[in-house]
Design a protein around this nucleic acid. Structure first.
Lengths: 232, 232
DNA sequence: CGACGAATTGAGTTCACTCAACTGGGGTGG
DNA sequence: CCACCCCAGTTGAGTGAACTCAATTCGTCG
């Protein structure tokens, strides 16, 4: 690993509270790599031998059963993925695919488990990262079980708008079929849902969304911090 | 706290790897209490001021939005709940209700966060508990997004049968409407799903389930360790 | 015995899926 | 440079899954 890379990585939330010796141990076999879109980083069912952290770009976590597949989450910087499998030395429950060209930090799993046992700062950082991950899936499960697909889409739009600065005009940052899977619906259902949203003055042109009547959309979405806010 | 209680609690997986000073700190304001069924222990949106561990009994975690409500999970010994909210000092995302008379260990939140920062063994135990919780919700999300309600029921039956010793005859340990909410369906839909399972030679009488043709049920359920096994 | 809540059954409707056909760029190669 | 293809996305039609509302049965407890 190059010195300037090390500089950067040491400031990562996961490593910032580490003791110096822990850092040395962790960064021994670590490396940073760029991956092009569509790269498959992990496959569900494989042994967890790396912890991945997204430095830039976006990663899709997907899961399958029989011949069906769905998207569990989309991860951006500075978050990690499959940290739970690493901490427990178990199998990945999800596959990870690169959505857009990404820089990824890869940390070997065994030193992580070892470091947790000796460095409370690091173990706490791992616990906090995992707590966030837990809350995000729990929120997603609520989203999924309590809302219809139109409501999920409306809330995704509200959320995305806030994320991009609240200009009521933004682009969808990945393919619509991935958005559909993320929202738990068929691609056709997403198309029809967008068509339905025209009634609420939401205009869509390609990947660009314009919300003309914010109040109407928000009334439909009824966003709830306990489901929609990443840090509440 | 009584001495024999302390004896018991100190062996709990969450505390077994603690340093002695950490234990003292944690158990300072801790107590064990019995709760009758239907007690509400936490409400979603409240500040997290206790970590709860189930010593015996069963707890339902529920969440709501507008006028809808659903069950997120059912927790039994020796697991904890709302550990993520405690670790991050945030709001509970779920309400917890006592399903059957239960003994609960309650640990004040502030000492937990403090102890994590100084005791690597404890922080690791918290991280591992949380990793399990994460994997369980992630599995539940897969279950929810990838399976129909009939398939979810079939898998719940398979799972419950294994849990109770594989005798192909067991009881449903709580009300059917809670099972329905757990499986993400309306109570009426659960009734009809049971009716459908008669075709697969599953007999149901009150809370008692008898599986006459195990192969048929398993073929329908297609259980997958990456969704259905708690520790893979 | 009556009362209450849980569970089932019935009927109708809505939601969301599948399958299929069609549209509209973007890219490739003749 | 244009024709073609390919894939994402849309649109249409039909089906099935699962919900709501309502009525009925069942079991338990006072």
């Amino acid at each position: 690993m190059r010195a300037e890379e090390r500089e950067e990585i040491v400031r990562h939330p996961l490593l910032a509270a580490c003791q110096a010796e822990t850092l040395d141990l962790l960064l021994q076999g670590a490396f940073v790599q760029r991956f092009p879109a569509h790269t498959q980083l992990t496959r569900e069912g494989e042994k967890a031998d790396f912890l991945y952290a997204v430095l830039s770009g976006a990663i899709e976590l997907a899961a399958s059963w029989l011949d069906r597949e769905t998207t569990i989450a989309v991860i951006g910087p500075p978050h990690t993925f499959i940290v739970a499998a690493v901490a427990l030395d178990r199998l990945y429950l999800q596959s990870a695919r690169v959505l857009e060209p990404s820089r990824i930090l890869m940390l070997p799993a065994a030193p992580i488990r070892k470091a947790m046992r000796t460095d409370a700062g690091f173990a706490t950082a791992i616990a906090e990262e995992m707590a966030n991950a837990y809350r995000n899936v729990a929120q997603e499960l609520k989203n999924q079980k309590l809302r219809t697909s139109l409501e999920r889409l409306a809330n995704w739009l509200v959320h995305r708008d806030k994320e991009t600065g609240g200009g009521h005009r933004f682009i969808i940052p990945f393919e619509k079929k991935i958005l559909a899977a993320r929202l738990g619906m068929a691609p056709e259902a997403l198309s029809r849902a967008f068509a339905t949203l025209v009634k609420y003055d939401v205009r869509i042109d390609g990947a660009t969304v314009v919300v003309k009547d914010w109040a109407a959309l928000e009334k439909l979405a009824h966003p709830d911090p306990l489901i929609d806010d990443e840090t509440i």
